[in-house]
Every structure is written in structure tokens, then in C-alpha cells.
Computed example of a mutant assay.
Amino acid sequence: MLIASVAAGLALLALVTQAGVVLVQRAYPAPGRLVEVAGAVLHVVDTGPRDAAGPPIVMLHGASANLEVMRQPVGERLAKNHRVILIDRPGHGWSTRADLEDSTPAIQGRMIEQALARLGVGKAIIVAHSWAGALGARMALDYPHRVAGLVMLAPVAYPWPGGVGRYNQIVTTPVIGPLLAYTITLPLGYLLAGPGARGVFLPQAMPDGFVRNTATPLLLRPREFLANAWDLVTLKAAVAEQAPRYAELKAPITIMSGDVDKTVSTNIHSRPLAAAAPNAKLIVLPGVGHMVQNAVPDRVIAEIEAMIGQMAPGTAAAPPPARTAADRDRAN
């Protein structure tokens, strides 16, 4: 009797989840185009003038998100004067991936590089937030012909103490993980999405309507929730593997991080990266948390514009002047 009751309850939750997926996807349709690459179809919003001076700007979002978290604070404003390409990372938003384990920066970087080639993009400035910091760095290492410069916002770059949340480990467990994803994740997630997002913004306040305006409920779909969990549980090993190569980075890099970021530690990630990369500039923002693009959008845009200003159309910028450790650590 108990087993039958549990099975019936799970079946009901599965039906609720499938109905919820339909409703969520109707509420947040894909605003861009789909680009086929090996092993995936990537959703891309390609906006702004094609004949703008300087390289295009490619914006990559972090974990538990989609391209809207990059478009609304800074992407739309940049698109007034530049070609801006916003991409749902593989498995997120309206992008797909063939295998849940296509979760590392190396694999996703290959897919995104293929999409940029299909879009006719030569060199681009990569603007990457959080998880995508590791992705941007990997693309600059593996595809230097594609990366004119990197602007990294609160980037993940190195291994860190601890894990990424017990629930991510559970969700990536065979059988149990998919069972949970296809039954309780969506209904429970609706209750927790707001508080969870609010915590990432601290000490800044989360913008009104953030969850709704950024299509965050798309994350609660089983296939995306599973993909996100795989991204997180495989990231630590991935950055451990690529971090010794950071001295090979040739592109100019601007790193912007808050000094009170509780999600991605500036001391663990941004400071060591700035010390390792030859052409890096570190900006530590006082009193700023993890969502740098929301906290200081004008500053982010100014730094992107400054990098573009160093570049002739279609070429990489010359390396910035040599900096002392104090220079790289100064927030100006």
C-alpha cells in the first residue's frame, strides 16, 4: 500500500512537472535564433549594428541562468553602438546539448566557437560572468584566433575548498537524480527561486521582478536543471586542469570582482588569475557582491568600451602597459 501510494504521488508530480514545463516555455519563448553545432543547438540573440567599429561583444552567463542575465543590465545598452551576441550556454535557456556530461568549459567552449564561426564572427571580446569565467579563459586558451579580449565578471578560475551544494551531487546521481528532476524540482523550485536568487545579489538588493524578467523559471525544467547540476559538479576538476595554463593567455583581460562576493571568492579566483595572466587588469569593487553587471553596469560598460577603444577593427588590442602588483589590485 505504501509503495503504491508513493508511486501514485510521484506519477502525479511528474504530470504536474510536464504541465509546468509547457507553461514555462510558453511564458518564455526563445527570443533569438538557433545555431546548429556539433552535439548541440545553441540559442543566440545577435543584436546591434553589424558595421560597428571594433570586434563584436560575446556575452556568456554563469550557472543557474540564461542569456537574459547578461542582456538586461548591460547587453541592450552595449547593442546601441556595438554588435552584441548573447548565447545561452549548452543545456541552458533554449540551447541544447547531446549529453548531460557535456558540461566542462572545454566542451562548451568548442560548441560556442563553432557557433561564432557559423555567425561569421572573427575575433570577439568575450564578457563572461561567474561559471563562464572558466569558459572564457578556456576559449582564450584553445581558440586565441577567436578571442580579442576578455572581460571577466566575478569569474570562477581555480579550485575552491568544499563543494557546490549537496543537492547538485544528489541530482547528478544515476536514477535518483532524474527521478527528482522530473517530479519535485519544478514545483518546489517555484517556491525557492526568489530566495535563492536574492542570496546571490547580497549585499545589493535583487532588482524587482528579476526572476520573471530574466526567464529564471526555465531553469526548473528537468533537462536544464540536470544540465546545470552537471556543470557545477564537474567545474572544480575542470578548472584544476586548465589553471596551470593561465600564463599562456595572450589576450588582454579585465577582471572585475566585488570584495564582498560570497558566491565566488575574489581572493581564491580573481586575484590569482590577475597574477597569473600576463595582460590582466584587476578591478576590485568595494562593497559589491557577485552580480557585478547589476551592481555597477556603468562601470562594466566603461571597461568594455575601453578595451574596444584599444583595438583597431578586426584586430586584437596591443597588450596594456606592464603593471605592478599594486596597479593590478587597484580599483580604478
Rank of each mutant, 00 (worst) to 15 (best):
D298A: 15
G39K: 07
G109I: 01
A98P: 06
T47W: 04
A52Y: 05
R223M: 14
H82V: 10
Q293S: 14
L249P: 00
R299L: 15
G209E: 13
R198T: 08
I87M: 08
A229P: 05
L42H: 02
M59N: 04
L186Q: 11
V175C: 00
W160T: 12
V44I: 07
R77I: 11
V300R: 05
M256S: 08
L78I: 09
I283N: 14
A79D: 08
I3A: 12
P222I: 02
P73N: 10
V6R: 01
A238W: 04
T47V: 14
V44M: 01
A181Q: 03
V121G: 07
Q108S: 01
R245V: 08
K262Y: 11
F210H: 12
A124N: 02
D231I: 07
H129K: 06
E68Q: 14
G136V: 07
D231Y: 02
G194M: 08
G9W: 07
A205P: 12
A19S: 14
R330V: 15
A7Y: 02
I308K: 13
T47S: 14
V44P: 02
T266S: 13
L153K: 02
E68D: 13
T47L: 14
I268R: 07
N279T: 11
G9Y: 05
N213T: 11
M111S: 05
R330D: 15
D259T: 12
G289D: 02
G162C: 06
D88F: 03
Q25W: 03
P321H: 04
H290W: 06
V37D: 09
R223W: 06
V37I: 07
A317V: 07
V260N: 08
G177D: 00
P217V: 07
E224L: 15
A280Y: 06
N228H: 14
H61W: 04
E305Q: 13
P297L: 06
L202C: 01
F201V: 10
L219I: 09
